[in-house]
Design a protein around this nucleic acid. Sequence first.
DNA 1: AGTATTTGACCACA
DNA 2: TGTGGTCAAATACT
Length: 315
Amino acid sequence: MEIMNWERRSLLNELIHGLNAAKQLQGSSSPSLTASSSCLTTEIKETLLHNIVSSFKKAILMLNGSTTQHNPTIELAPDHLAHPGKVSESPASIIGSPRSEEFFDVGSKEFNLSSKKRKMLPKWTEQVRISPERGLEGPHDDIFSWRKYGQKDILGAKFPRSYYRCTYRNIQYCWATKQVQRSDGDPTIFEVTYRGTHTCSQGIPPPEKRETKPNHTVVVNYQNNLLDNLRMVRTGRLGSEAFSFPVRSPLYTYESINGGGTFYHHVGSSGPSDFTGLISTNTSTGSSPIFDVNFQFDPTAEIDTGFPTFFHNSI
DNA sequence: AGTATTTGACCACA
DNA sequence: TGTGGTCAAATACT
């Protein structure tokens, strides 16, 4: 029952997601141009177009895959879907083939993902700029718990690359990882590459575990992949250099509600509008658009990652 | 004592 | 064979 609701919501959300992107695109070419929509660059339009196609594709695959509910699968988006200007190398789709059994060495003593298959996990990259008041420490705190498992000097890079895995890998067989690489050009920008989505309990935090901190403002910079990978950064957490960029949240969709900078607010499927944000073009970054996002975020609001938890352990 | 981080070694792949 | 990614022992931290 719950699964059905969840799947239905995911499907519905994908369609809404695509519709919103289509609306954006439509707005940009309609005669009654708003100040914001008329500012859409070709790149953004292409991204929106990509989002539309991607959403419909996911929705169709969800429908196709609904009969294989107990054979949860991951879809790895083909490269041709990757937008030329998009940072994301592979949308985090979690439907389609191959079958999950092929991803996990179930029979092995240690329930494990083979390295080959780990490489096939969905992968996407964000560029996150740290806010000046927070110092230059790296981005190491988001809503997920990560454990650092390595650091490597990368050829040609000024700064080492850090490797993190989900804290609950061994307990809940969650294979989400991320790499954090400080930008050579702009040391305030960190390139965060995520691989795999959280299949642990963090993916959908239970109500009692949600943060109950007071409202705070979040600031984030995103390059490309504007609406598809909307995330946010927490700032101003006392006594911590950390900042956050919570999980992509397809169940939260955003629509433009004013001109000028494009103002977005949560139009999710449940509850009141408790999540708003202002996106404006960052003019300091040349041709590649980085968007400054200011959210007023109620952390007590329900956060649904929107990612199908394609594999639930049963320990 | 339990958990997290560091870091050199190992491995796969191009 | 060089490079990037991961492992795991040693170490640090709470």
